[in-house]
Write a protein that binds this DNA or RNA. Structure first.
Length: 945
RNA sequence: GCCCGGGUGGCGAAACUGGUAUACGCACAACACUUAAAAUGUUGCGCCUUAUGGGCAUGCGGGUUCGAUUCCCGCCCCGGGCACCA
């Protein structure tokens, strides 16, 4: 018997599959289609490490199973080949990025080839191919024609090291995502795509994507960052400054006004005395990067402009400050500051001694009963501290689940008197020293069981210290209701279970701060007594009615800065024509090819290297024929990847980006698999781009990806990321050489849940290899003589395995699928003779995971056709159920015995058998059986006393 | 700070809808085969224990339930995302 020679087997079948064109995508439109897609890689110089193919292995398994289930499967691969690393490499080594990229692609393709993937290489695409980027440019022009691509001079993120502008999505912690340099803010002319026009649709349509992971949808929601609120106009002298707020209900609490240092109105409103100060502050703020502005956030700074704004709602004059905690980039770049209800405003007000006006009080409506009377009360709570032992005076109620501080209503007295009286009545203590009031009021409306009525109460909280333990006798009536307890300071938080008192306690411990939650409006004229939602609504309507403001929505997402000052990208297909009035004119011939250039070095002046090629820059205007200059910026790397998946459907079409009929059949992508790091970059851009193509009628569907799954990273054996820096990279070529592609495939899928990060373990890999060897050796025991050996248990296990493996592949639970295959293989291994039918079915189930081995074993039992032309097996529902079960007998929930019985045993029979058990009877001696619970097919639980 | 995930043996991890916790694999140990080692095979493997049994264990504390890894409340720790977003 031969040994399992993975090298021989894998090379043999890879050649064979290629010769047979086994993976060429079928075009038989009568079959259902399945489009399964990997995020295409950037072909870096370093080649693949073992982590990269994890997602590809998964899609390959899925694709093979779908093929066998009768689908036309589209499973393509291509290259996201524009980008900075190739260009930087070119600068250092004087090699054209195209040459370097081609070489890298070659390496990648070889590495992928060794893993035996089903990619249809006839459909390979490459974003740097002019026949491909022609359509990237075409889409850009369509956007330009519709006003969605525009030039802007706003300050943008400039990376001083990469010498290019970056979009917000390219930043990490205010640093360049690629090189880690701190970003500068520079105003520069840029091409920008108006992605904000699609913000609302991208947000709403997330609901159309039930098969996207929640976490990724959540990230997109946060990134789009929708806030609803109002814009309010404040008069500052003759000028009008508009603010955006999500809390129009707090307008009466605005006690100052803040503008971002970049706000255009500052010059006009600053008074002569304050001019110097203001200019100094603005200059200092401009010198800080966004990064520094947030890093230094601990301490608020600002400067008074000398002017006052008029609060439109009450005509109050409030001072106007400039402070860098307000950002020009969000909302209107100006805010109304409500220190009582916003933490940042609170800090600022504390520092600059600005009044704080409370207009919202916490309010809890706790199921008041509509059929009972409601009593309005002013209530005071006494928090009494015993300095001797650091304990606080509390009440434990007897008939209700209340643990509280002494509390009671005001009886026409002042707060302190009422509180002292209440403490004396309820607890007997009579000598208290008043310390201070804790926080503001809290309101609540709730049902009081002990008085059978509702209260609508305003609570105030007073802190006392116990002077001495002098105490009076407490009335019996009070004693019946509650018990007096002294609780240690650390335990108060968990002891007190009355909502408002808990909040008051927190306020006492943490000191005063802004209350940012919802509540009841107070000190707010026509809003008084309204709850937050209603108050917002009423205020907004009032503002609109008086033309002092309007309903408004704000998004965090910014328009997409779409130009880069680098060489290795798609040229933006625009010429600037002086004769046509210095406007941008789109090129009439596409593709506009990237010209050859001697020097790839960025100029650093904000111009791309293309600007140095006069012959290319100087051109004719496509509109008027006069001399004009080409746009020299190029597109970002995200451009091509925003739509590449469409091109696989129709890769050779020179008339359209994609043929609409073909798009109708193949789109949308049924299943998209890739790294979670793309949740807010690529996946936002692609959805935007796709919706645009849908709007202009270029494609049939308005969402590109039906189901989305993210891959968990494979870490190095030491638990760190694989990186050249740590010298812990494992090359798949070596693994394939030593252990085989099939072992690597099985191991990577068996490591753990697919979306979870997991550290590589060579021992684990050896385990996978051992499993395949075991499978390989099974062929020794196949019997050809009896087609089916009667073995009911094995038959049932096989059908369970079919069910398990089929379902697990569908849900990407490969680790448990493989575990099921291992159990099956172990059981087959125990047989002296293995039925060829059982064996064949098992090999088919294994084939998506270990395709080379499966194909070899398949041909080994005499098949001429590929195993991947077999039909995927179906399980028999009758056979996945067990005939007998181990009936678990519990006593008070603890397992005490197990009895093998028929699976459909009735309750009465089960009881009888259980009660006859010797083990059980030992437990039942002199005990009373209270009840017996029976769960069909599972267990019986005897409850005793 | 806010929003998502997650915490189960020595390790990677299983567990359907609240019903036998620790499947499968790794590591480890003993035994068999061998001159020997490797490979392979067999067996054992959560912790404690006074041991034909019993007790305790799914981050910690409480609750609901006949029964909780699973549901509810509070806390701790780890990972990810966002972050002066008004």
């Amino acid at each position: 018997m031969e040994k399992y020679d993975h090298k021989k087997i894998e090379q043999k079948w890879q050649k064979h599959w290629q010769k047979e064109k086994l993976y060429q995508t079928g075009e038989d439109k009568t079959k259902p289609k399945f489009y399964i897609l990997d995020m295409f890689p950037y072909p870096s110089g370093a080649g693949l490490h073992v982590g990269h193919p994890k997602g590809y292995i998964a899609t390959d398994i899925f694709a093979r199973a779908k093929m066998m289930q009768g689908y036309n499967v589209l499973h393509p691969m291509g290259w996201d080949a524009f980008g900075l690393p190739a260009e930087n490499y070119a600068i250092q080594n004087k090699i054209h990025p195209r040459i370097a990229t081609e070489k890298n692609i070659d390496t990648f393709k070889k590495q992928l080839g060794k893993l035996g993937f089903t990619y249809d290489w006839n459909r390979e695409i490459n974003t740097t191919d002019p026949e491909f980027y022609k359509w990237t440019q075409w889409t850009f022009i369509k956007m330009f024609e519709r006003g969605l691509a525009y030039e802007s001079n706003e300050p943008v993120n400039w990376c001083p090291s990469c010498k290019t502008v970056l979009s917000n999505e390219d930043l990490e912690d205010g640093k360049c995502e690629r090189c880690g340099s701190v970003i500068e803010r520079k105003p520069m002319r840029q091409w920008v795509l108006k992605i904000t026009d699609y913000a609302e649709r991208m947000l709403n349509d997330l609901e159309k994507l039930p098969d996207w992971e929640e976490s990724i949808k959540e990230m997109q929601k946060n990134w789009i960052g929708k806030s609803e609120g109002a814009e309010v106009n404040f008069k500052i002298g003759e000028e009008i400054a508009t603010v955006f707020t999500t809390r129009p209900d707090t307008l009466f609490g605005a006690t100052f006004f803040v503008m971002a240092p970049e706000h255009p109105l500052i010059k006009k409103i600053t008074t002569a005395e304050q001019k110097k100060e203001v200019e100094k502050y603005i200059k200092a703020a401009a010198g800080k990067s966004d990064m520094e502005r947030t890093e230094l956030a601990k301490e608020k700074t600002g400067v008074f402009t000398g002017s006052y704004a008029i609060n439109p709602v009450n005509r109050e004059k409030i001072p106007v400050y400039i402070a860098d905690y307000v950002m020009m980039g969000y909302g209107t770049g100006a805010i109304m500051a409500v220190p009582a209800h916003d933490e940042r405003d609170w800090e600022f007000a504390k520092k600059y001694n600005i009044p704080i006006k409370e207009v919202i009080v916490p309010f809890l409506k706790d199921d008041p009963r509509p059929d009972k009377e409601t009593e309005k009360r002013e209530v005071v709570t006494a928090i009494v501290k015993n300095l001797k032992n650091n304990r606080y005076l509390c009440l434990k109620w007897k008939n209700i689940d209340w643990k509280s501080f002494p509390t009671g209503g005001l009886d026409g007295e002042d707060l302190v008197t009422a509180a002292k009286r209440e403490v004396k009545e309820e607890t007997g203590y009579k000598n208290l020293k008043f310390i201070k009031q804790v926080g503001g009021s809290i309101f609540a409306e709730f049902y009081r069981p002990h008085k059978d009525s509702n209260v609508y109460a305003s609570f105030k909280y007073l802190l006392f210290e116990l002077e001495n333990e002098g105490r009076e006798e407490v009335a019996q009536k009070e004693k019946d209701q509650h018990e007096v307890v002294w609780v240690e300071e650390e335990k108060i938080e968990s002891f007190i279970n009355v909502w408002n008192q808990k909040l008051a306690w927190q306020r006492l411990k943490q000191g005063d701060s802004a209350y940012c939650g919802d509540g009841l409006s107070v000190n707010s004229d026509f809003l008084n007594g309204l709850e937050t939602e209603a108050a917002k609504e009423k205020m907004t309507a009032w503002l609109e009615n008086k033309k002092l403001g309007k309903r408004a929505i704000n998004y965090k997402i910014k328009d997409w800065v779409f130009s880069r000052q680098r060489y290795w990208g798609e040229p933006i297909p625009i010429v600037h024509c002086p004769k046509c009035g210095n406007v941008a004119v789109p090129c009439d011939e596409l593709p506009l090819k990237l010209p050859e250039v001697k020097n790839y070095e960025p100029t650093g002046t904000g111009e791309s290297p293309l600007a140095n090629i006069e012959k290319w820059v100087n051109t004719k205007c496509p509109k008027c024929g006069g001399s004009a200059k080409r746009e020299t910026n190029t597109m970002p790397q995200w451009a091509g990847s925003s739509w590449y998946y469409l091109r696989y459907i129709d890769p050779y079409n020179d008339k359209a980006l994609v043929d609409k009929a073909k798009d109708k059949y193949w789109s949308p992508v049924d299943f998209y698999v890739g790294g979670a790091e793309h949740a807010t970059r690529h996946l936002i851009y692609a959805r935007f781009w796709h919706k645009f193509l849908f709007d202009i009628g270029a494609v049939n569907y308005d969402e590109p990806f039906t189901r989305l799954q993210h891959v968990g990273l494979i870490l190095a054996e030491d638990g760190r990321k694989m990186s050249k820096r740590w010298h812990n990279v494992i090359n798949p070529d070596e693994i394939v050489e030593k252990f085989g592609a099939d072992s690597m495939r099985v191991y990577e899928m068996f490591m753990g849940p697919f979306s979870q990060p997991c550290a590589w373990s060579t021992n684990g890999l050896i385990g996978a290899r051992r499993f395949l060897e075991k499978v390989f050796n099974l062929q020794l025991r196949i019997t050809n003589y009896e087609l089916r050996i009667t073995n009911d248990k094995l038959e049932r296990l096989l059908h369970k395995t079919i069910k398990r493996v089929s379902e697990d592949i569908e849900y990407f639970k490969f680790n448990t699928a493989i575990s099921a295959l291992m159990i099956m293989a172990n059981k087959l291994g125990e047989q002296e003779k293995i039925s060829i039918i059982h064996y064949s079915l098992f090999i088919i189930l294994l084939s998506p995971f270990a395709p080379h081995l499966a194909e070899e074993l398949w041909s080994g039992i005499g098949h001429k056709e590929s195993i991947f032309k077999e039909k995927w097996p179906e399980f028999n529902p009758d056979l996945v159920k067990d005939e007998t079960i181990n009936l678990v007998v519990q006593i008070n929930g603890k397992v005490r015995d197990m009895i093998e019985v028929s699976a459909d045993i009735s309750e009465n029979e089960a009881k009888k058998i259980a009660l006859e058990s010797e083990k059980i009877n030992k437990w039942l001696e002199s005990k009373e059986v209270i009840k017996i619970i029976f769960v069909k097919g599972k267990l019986i639980n005897i409850v005793i006393k």
